[in-house]
Structure formats: structure tokens, C-alpha cells
Amino acid sequence: MNIQAVKVIYKYEMLRTWNTLFQSIASPVISTALYFIVFGSAIGSRIQSVEGVTYGLFIVPGLMMLSILTQSVSNASFGIFFPKFSGTVYEVMSAPISFFEILLGYVGAAASKSLILGAIILITASFFVELRIDHPVWMVLFLVLTCVSFSLLGFIIGLWATNFEKLQVVPLLIITPLVFLGGTFYSVSMLPPVWQTVTLFNPVLYLVSGFRWSFFGVSDVHVGISLGVILLFLGICSGVVWWMFKTGYRLKQ
């Protein structure tokens, strides 16, 4: 195992964020604060409670998921897209490093950043609402699984994308709608029956639901199903990445 290589890739990717530290911290803090002001206070004051928790508190898990999903994808995709685009990836490709180690470096860093982001949002949220986490261990487990699997998805997108437009189109046209329609700011039971059925095909629903369960013990679908879906998603992404590496997809002629 080439530990040194994993270390330098990981460090390189983490430093990329460190160099824009202010932006990296300020933007989630500001956007979280805005969501709380708009949804939590302004609109939330007209909503009694959802599933027995105040609306402000109810949106905390969804809000975290929203940021984590988009940031995992964009961080990981950019991390591999840019060296590929500029040609500097030749060095990684010619190094005595296995595909697993490459993943560990790039995806590990992207997932770490998302975890830190999640923590920042949680801390910010604590200034607006009285936090309540019923199942902290499950909460962390869901958080880590989500960060890792969506960083993997981002890595796949970064490898697949041949230009900047493609790099941005997937997060914008696929991830964001899925997240918003996945019960981030509402309980699925609040939707008309037809839409409830449609929503069941949205994988993000299961993430948010399971994550929310770890906070308040209430969920749209059973927590076991949530866990199953996220593990399935992780498995699919790993499979795709494995295939990409095996065939040298977009990296090797």
C-alpha cells in the first residue's frame, strides 16, 4: 500500500479548500442562516409543527443533506476533473499507485470536507433552534455513508465530464431537483397521494428520511429501508468506479 501517495493526494485536496477557507466556511454559514430566517422563522412561524417537531428544527436534517449532497458531488467531481482537464493527471497515472489508493485520496478528501461542512451547518443551526438528536450514532453513520457515496458519485461525474458544462449540468439538473423533491423541507405525508408514490422513486428521500429519523425518531420510510437504499447506492457507485478504472475510462487510451 502506497500510504505516502494517499497522504499527498488527500492533503492536496484538503489544501485546495484551505486556500479558500473563508469562502468554504462563510458560504454554508450564510446559506444556513438564510434558510433558517426564511423557512424557520418567517414561514415556520405559520406552521404549527411537522411530525411533532417545530418546523425550524424539522428542516435541520434536510438542510444538512442539501448542502452535503451538492458539495460532495461538486468537490469530488472538480477534484478529479481539473487534473484530467489540464493534463496534470499524467503524474498520478504514472505513479506506483492502485486505483483504490487514488480513490482513497480523492474521495476521502471530498467526503472529509462534506463531514466538516455538515458539522458547520449543525453548529450554525444550533444558534437558531434547540437541537435534538435522538440517535447520534446512527446520525453519524448516515452522515458518513452519505458523504462517501455522493463523493463517489461526484468522482464518477468528474471522470465522465469532458467539459465544464457537463461538470455543472449534473449537479444542477439532477442532484438539486432530487434533493428538493426528496422531502428536504417537508414530510412526504404532506404531499398528495400521487406525488407520494412518485417520490418513492427518489433515492434522496430515503437518505433524508433515515437521517431525520436519527434526529427525531420519525421517518417517512422505515429506517432499515433507508439504510438498505444508501448501501445499495454506495455499492452501485463503487461498481461504476471499479469498471471505470478497470477499463481506463477517460483516463487511459
Partner: peptide, 11 residues
């Protein structure tokens, strides 16, 4: 340079 060295597994 540090990055390159690390990639090739050297301390």
C-alpha cells in the same frame, strides 16, 4: 515537488 515525491511512495 513534495507532492510528486509522495505520489511515488517516498518519505
Amino acid at each position: 515537488l513534495r507532492f510528486s515525491r509522495g505520489l511515488f511512495g517516498k518519505k
